[in-house]
Nucleic acid binder design. Structure first.
Lengths: 361, 361
DNA sequence: ATGTACCTTGGGAGCGCTCCCAGTTGTGAT
DNA sequence: ATCACAACTGGGAGCGCTCCCAAGGTACAT
């Protein structure tokens, strides 16, 4: 590799040192100016800024990372067994929100898809080598060891969605129960009498929340909850299809269904069509997520919208606030059950949902 | 991976130096082992590997980046005026493919969404500070200055899709004309007589290619091309809707339409429904992209699939090969029109498409 | 004047790694 | 035994930045 590093003229990128020389000041001063420290006189600052502009100086991030032990980058980690997650606007919403918020803080987003054991190890190593200042964890399964691994390495992390009702890590979630309540309430308000629901897998907390919301809405309306009207799906179209067929067979008088996801609603819609039931004439349908699918269904699907972009943004905000609390240094592994006095509990945020009414209900 | 990460003296992460001390060798030797250099005796290598395992050593990437001038990360850049791009499986496919290929090379993916001027500047700076070894550019407009800016900074880049027929940069594209030909050929084979097309904006090369494919297919079948059957859309649903209405008004006898994107096909479908035309009975419909929308339309849409994952992978492969040709060092800005003897022309790759036949045709 | 307190400033000391040049050792040929 | 040559190995010299301490200035009170 015969790299001729510096051409005679204009080859290499200018360094702090060169800026300092040109401005006639010391390195430290330039560093202060670049980092916006207030401890620089106005006059000197101007001098340095001129030199920076003249040279087109851009700080070398690698050097900064090495010297300061901070990287100005966070990882967005997506365990990706489920392609589902990926194609959904959900993902892109998180991405967009997180990216926008990070940009405002002049930080970078590292995207990490974890497909298998090997890639998880790879990421753990990466985190261990402190190439990122924190991690946003998305679509995590309850038994994923990743959060613990990160905590062990002293890397701050924020979850998207709780893994259980007593989530111990910082998280951002939507109010799934409230969303479900509004959906079911809407169906009842519309005069529907027999409202069923197609749920997600019960080992997912989000699915339980939505099912609970369904029950609460019925109780609030003074109706009893017929557990046979809760049928389990798995967040896939095929699962929604099966669930709907089962419902139709068991409960012919059914006139409304709340599906815990749009994708399942699409499957349910198909089953209804096959059974010759019209939507919303015979059966009203409501989904969850307000995805592209919802808009393109026939008829367009009423659905519960989550403020996804905002979730992404909020995750970043929390992550950054975390960083301020505990310096990026690897802290000793401490019993996580024992919070410190000035850190009463991990920050968390639950965002509201909104019902988008379309013609399926 | 029960690495005993920190010996008695907890706290900091082990360094090369510590590994060297423990193994009783020099820093250079450990570095060689870590980087898989062959110039180390088997015995010494074993010694070092033991020490690494014992200490749970993970190289500090920031230090490596600084010392070696290389970062083991590439940026995926998405100028995002068009949300379209983002929700589509197209994006996630590229992402998935690129991520998988990068993981195999132990490299990281930096995702950069560029929403405005400010963010573009930010990225340019970032690239200039050499925090990435290269860039994957996706969904670029023909007049985007980004490629030139990157070239100026000596940062290798690969495009997704050509900007014109004589693209000067390395790129990966699909054979859009061939895809269109197969779609239109399929419609003709099905006995359709009056086949129209809804095109994309003519200032996008991809749109022109698909329109050309449409023409070629007609000619190949021995039919003339009636230019009034080419109606311009803009890759949005609304545009597809408008275009279809125009077509229906101008050409009542029409019995097939090839849409240059699924999204436009969805709009067209709506217009057909409004006009009381059945699909595929009265009018056959074919889209392009094979997106989620295609599968969920009623009836499911026949569409042209592109090997998107593979495109992402291939982009990374090309980028890495580029890196080998020209060392990451900032090379002197050279006249780009003057290729070097050992670098005849930028690498490029055009991948084949596949027609996915569903019930809309 | 002298002292005190507070700012600003320069620059040494690393951060952990790679590069590369000697130095050391081992091998085979003379 | 001697020499040439190759194969290993150690460690100095940075990479460009931040951190931090001490030096120098300035302003005000004593």
């Amino acid at each position: 590799m015969a790299a001729v590093r510096n051409g005679v003229a204009g080859g290499r990128r200018p360094t702090l040192e060169q800026v300092a020389r040109l401005a006639g000041v010391g390195r430290g001063t330039v560093s202060r100016v670049v980092n916006g420290s207030p401890r620089v006189s106005a006059h000197t600052r101007e001098l340095v800024e001129d030199a920076i502009a003249q040279l087109g100086y851009v700080p070398n991030r690698a050097a900064r990372a090495l010297a300061a032990g901070t990287t100005d980058a966070v990882a967005l980690v997506v365990p990706e067994q489920e392609t589902r997650f990926f194609a959904e606007p959900y993902f892109s919403g998180i991405l967009r929100g997180a990216s926008a918020e990070l940009a405002e803080h002049d930080m970078q987003l590292l995207l990490t898809l974890i497909r298998n054991e090997r890639e998880r190890d790879r990421f753990t190593q990466y985190a261990a080598s402190h190439r990122v200042d924190g991690a946003l964890l998305v679509s995590l399964h309850a038994d994923d060891p990743l959060p613990d691994l990160l905590a062990e390495h002293g890397l701050p992390a924020v979850l998207n969605g709780r893994r259980s009702s007593d989530e111990s890590m910082p998280y951002v979630d939507t109010d799934n129960a409230a969303g479900a309540r509004s959906a079911v309430g809407h169906l009842l308000d519309g005069g529907r009498t027999t409202v069923a629901t197609i749920t997600g897998p019960p080992d997912m907390y989000v699915a339980r929340c939505r099912a609970d919301g369904y029950r609460e809405a019925l109780r609030t309306a003074g109706r009893g909850v017929d557990e046979s009207l809760l049928v389990q799906g798995d967040f896939t179209e095929e699962g929604g299809h099966r669930a709907m067929r089962r419902l139709l067979a068991a409960e012919p008088s059914l006139d409304a269904v709340f599906c815990a996801s749009d994708v399942m609603a699409a499957g349910a819609r198909l089953a209804l069509r096959e059974a010759g039931r019209s939507v919303p004439g015979d059966v009203a349908l409501v989904g969850f997520d307000d995805s592209a699918i919802a808009r393109h269904m026939d008829p367009p699907l009423t659905s519960v919208r989550q403020p996804i972009d905002e979730m992404g943004r909020e995750m970043v905000r929390i992550l950054l606030s975390l960083r301020e609390r505990e310096p990026a240094e690897a802290r000793p592994v401490r019993a996580s059950a024992q919070p410190e006095p000035d850190e009463p509990q991990p920050p968390r945020r639950v965002l509201p949902t909104e019902l988008v009414v379309r013609s399926s209900s």
